[in-house]
Design a protein around this nucleic acid. Structure first.
Lengths: 123, 123
DNA sequence: CCTAAAACAATAACGATTACTATATTTATT
DNA sequence: AATAAATATAGTAATCGTTATTGTTTTAGG
């Protein structure tokens, strides 16, 4: 993987927010400083960074995929009203072992997403 | 919701398998007995059945959405090789309460998907 | 039977993502 | 610094899963 200033800029954006942006939101943010950036470049780099474990993909069932610059194990909450994605502190590191006990599968990890309404939307 | 033989047939298919088929797989299965069935009908009914809690949507991060005729709370394992979806017995009913303790959010449920390799693919 | 609501098949449209192509940038080598 | 190979890019076209539209058919209730 060679250096590219586009990819560096994407990583900077992802690591400076807790908003879990979508590909298009990252694209819009990048266009503020680089009007020539291509949406294809954003997608290609997001996949590259995911495949190398540098960022995290969050599938919310709701709309398009969200991305997280924080790869420390944690889980997420998606508000079914505003669709925002929140980080949760919940420790679920024991779950993978439970599945290993129950099955003969090789478990590499899990994705845990909670649904409901956030503080702003719950009334 | 009026009766329709297309929807009845879909439910029969979904409840008679543990394979968690995609919309297209259900469509292909239905075409065996009804060559006129429309893919739009399959999608419309899948959404209708999901919205009414009669079937379950499973988002695997991998490809298109899978559906489950069993709505009893359970979680899933997706093989990253063959992409098959397996049921797990794991009881995770306590997780929602843990999130309620940690946050002020209204929690309606969660989706828990494990990743790894199944027995067939792990070597 | 007759009517209104709901469902249908067929097809067009949409939005997110990926593929393609010709050009530019990065990195390693002389 | 010049060169060459590998990698990345912008721009655009194509793909794929899903949803919307339309005119017709089926269902359910009076």
């Amino acid at each position: 993987m060679n250096y590219s200033k586009q990819r560096e800029s994407m990583l900077r954006i992802l690591r400076s927010t807790k908003s879990h942006p979508t590909a298009n939101e990252i694209y819009m943010e990048m266009r503020k400083t680089d009007s020539k950036i291509s949406l294809g470049t954003v997608y290609r780099n997001l996949n590259l960074l995911c495949d190398n474990g540098i960022i995290l993909r969050i599938d919310t069932n709701h709309d398009s995929v969200h991305y997280d610059g924080c790869v420390e194990p944690h889980c997420h909450f998606v508000c079914s009203d505003c669709k925002r994605v929140f980080d949760l502190e919940l420790d679920t590191s024991d779950l993978d072992d439970k599945v290993r006990e129950e099955t003969d599968f090789t478990v590499s990890g899990h994705s845990l997403v909670f649904y409901g309404k956030c503080n702003n939307c719950k009334d």
